[in-house]
Design a protein around this nucleic acid. Sequence first.
DNA 1: AGTACTGTTTGATGGAAGTCATACCGTTGA
DNA 2: TCAACGGTATGACTTCCATCAAACAGTACT
Lengths: 109, 109
Amino acid sequence: MESEVLEHPSVEEIDLVEVLKALSDPARLRLLAVMGDGDYHACRAEVYDLDLHKSTLSHHFKVMREAGVTMTRVTGRNRETRLRKEDLDARFPGLVDSLISGVTKEQTT
Amino acid sequence: MESEVLEHPSVEEIDLVEVLKALSDPARLRLLAVMGDGDYHACRAEVYDLDLHKSTLSHHFKVMREAGVTMTRVTGRNRETRLRKEDLDARFPGLVDSLISGVTKEQTT
DNA sequence: AGTACTGTTTGATGGAAGTCATACCGTTGA
DNA sequence: TCAACGGTATGACTTCCATCAAACAGTACT
């Protein structure tokens, strides 16, 4: 089973404004909360407990990926996404951790 | 000289999405960078090295204030704004520090 | 009183963004 | 081969937002 990787910005290209813009949305903040464990997750709405059209969800994943927040790999007809925690930590130390703890506190996942 | 204080959200009312939305803008991230010292700053464009119309700047300050990011007091015909660092730290520990160090790194203030 | 000053409010405008629906594409598996 | 599946791309719609300009409001100072 081959695993292909999509286009992602490099660590240096990750821009703070774009990261914040990507995360300043309830749905995408929810994605962050679930992906906080660093593992890969399927891109289905149930995984994130979101009631959104699949094209809308696809849009959100694209925004997250292009901002450098997430990494998506393609396996067959499935896609899996995980948080780029190490890269974000390298670029903005402490940011992701504080966001995750903040969002989980609010959402009481 | 009297000092009046405007309406601000309480600590509990500070919402993460609103905070991130407030900060996901280059101009307002610039405001954060300057206000990072926690002191009061006049609301003039030169202070922040921003080339924006005064009404635009006023708008940005309003967004920041209503999101709970900043505190503004009125003294005579002047306004001074400072970061609500303690409140933000209490609500989202570590967030402000990581943002400030991130933005100063990018902007090389 | 009147003028200068600081900043807000309102309105207009152009652009960006979230959502959905539909059509489409590559993969899987019967 | 072909239908089902997972997900994307495009288009439409609506709302939101950053910006400026002009008018306004309160304060300070002469």
